[in-house]
Design a protein around this nucleic acid. Structure first.
Lengths: 249, 249
DNA sequence: CGGCAAATTGAGCATTGTCAATGTCTGTGG
DNA sequence: CCACAGACATTGACAATGCTCAATTTGCCG
């Protein structure tokens, strides 16, 4: 729970009452197995989810049966704050790996946000950043070739995981199969394989099992047409905040 | 200004003080010519924009010079509420047609939202719906073929314009060139032309100048794999709901 | 009527998809 | 410790959707 507090305090300055109410927010910790559903398209969810450990993703399936992954969530991400404000889920959320999820009743979340507008703003900023990432994905899938797309995904994961404190700077565990990578990039698994292999062969990345090591960050960045402005990392140190208690949770 | 009030009242129940403050929100009305910029990527905007008349769109350009349109805004849309909360614009906003735009100082918007959480929630819901549309676009561009993509765009415009009261049910003015449609769908203008022509030839739509008439809505819907859940139109007539009791907090 | 932007069309091509086989790794049960 | 199953990765041959290039037509506006 202190994890949630830390997250919110990064985005806004809280008074004591707000901090107390936030810490009092009731929640349940759930464990999900790999590929189980947290939310199904069409649900009217009564709970909002925060990733404590593990990874999840959001997806949609077309009538033709093709799947598109819309977003990947990492530890610390508030997955579906919109559950508290929209009536119906328009896509599904699934566990990418086994994971622990903290769940909050949407009614409680709404009450908290109405009582403390600063908290609402903090959550809102979070959801705006996700919206920004969605837009970058539209551009990525719509206007970049396969090689660039995959490289871009790899860069995004690297930055996000690093900022979340889940990975070293240029090396991380990527728990996605090539099929899932393809579903995220709008490509077939076969082609993902070709591209990954090519990047590996050129020496910009290095793959061992599910681990990705970026051996030439400037090179990959260039290939990827990657600019991290859209992640709005500048939103993090916005307030005169304490950064010292990095991982005290 | 009453337009803005109406819009907000669709999403939340306001008390008299909130209504008064909202109506007092200072703004300037600007006119923009076709294809002029409202916001440029990299700006640190001090104003948020509401479309009063005309159309605008949001876009990004890749290093290779390809443009991707990320969103189209129609009268009544709050274009960039995120200007009030994020530090830097990660994409540009341009006028699709000559248009009138109401602009609000971000500081005023922030103050209003802090004073009246119900108003913040209303705006937030709006931005969550746009995020939902972004996700649908990711799926559309990532996993549907050209024909389906274009049909989907046409369906989306039809519904949105109708709900905004800007167009009749199955007939509307589409002020986009085929090149712009292509930039929205991740296709080349040449291919957009072929697809449009094909749909026209099959008799599901009818084009005259920039006007689109949908002559076979069920047919187009089917071709488009279109389901309007993601537009969250059910959020509009939500008055006597549990939401209101919460707002009293 | 001339000029321009946009739409249309055709021919050839390439990036990416499809299909199908094979290789590799990991965990499990014997 | 080994054999085996199953999931995933890799590869190759071939096809096709959508792109490029380039010409031409259409429609609008002064």
């Amino acid at each position: 729970m202190t994890r949630l507090l830390r997250k919110v305090e990064r985005r806004a300055t809280l008074d004591d009452a707000a901090r107390a109410d936030l810490l009092d927010l009731p929640y349940k910790l759930h464990r999900y197995d790999r590929s189980s559903y947290l939310v199904r398209e069409g649900d009217q969810p009564q709970r909002s989810c925060l990733v404590v450990s593990g990874f999840t993703y959001r997806q949609k399936v077309t009538v033709m049966g093709a799947r598109q992954i819309l977003s990947v969530y990492i530890p610390g991400d508030f997955i579906d704050i919109e559950a508290a404000l929209l009536n119906i889920a328009d896509d599904s959320i699934q566990a990418l790996t086994a994971c622990e999820i903290a769940q909050f009743a949407t009614a409680d979340v709404r009450a908290l946000m109405c009582a403390h507008p600063q908290i609402a703003l903090a959550f809102w900023i979070d959801s705006l950043i996700f919206a920004s990432i969605f837009r970058e994905w539209i551009a990525n899938i719509g206007r970049r070739d396969a090689r660039t797309r995959i490289a871009h995904l790899l860069c995004e994961f690297a930055r996000r995981l690093e900022v979340a404190g889940v990975a070293e700077e240029y090396r991380y565990e990527l728990p996605m199969t090539q099929e899932q990578l393809g579903d995220a990039a709008g490509l077939t698994p076969v082609h993902v394989n070709r591209v990954l292999r090519e990047l590996d062969g050129e020496g910009v990345i290095n793959r061992t099992k599910r681990q990705i090591e970026i051996t030439d960050w400037p090179g990959l960045r260039l290939i990827a047409d990657f600019n991290d402005t859209y992640l709005h990392l500048d939103q993090i140190p916005r307030e005169p905040q304490h950064q010292s208690s990095r991982d005290a949770a």
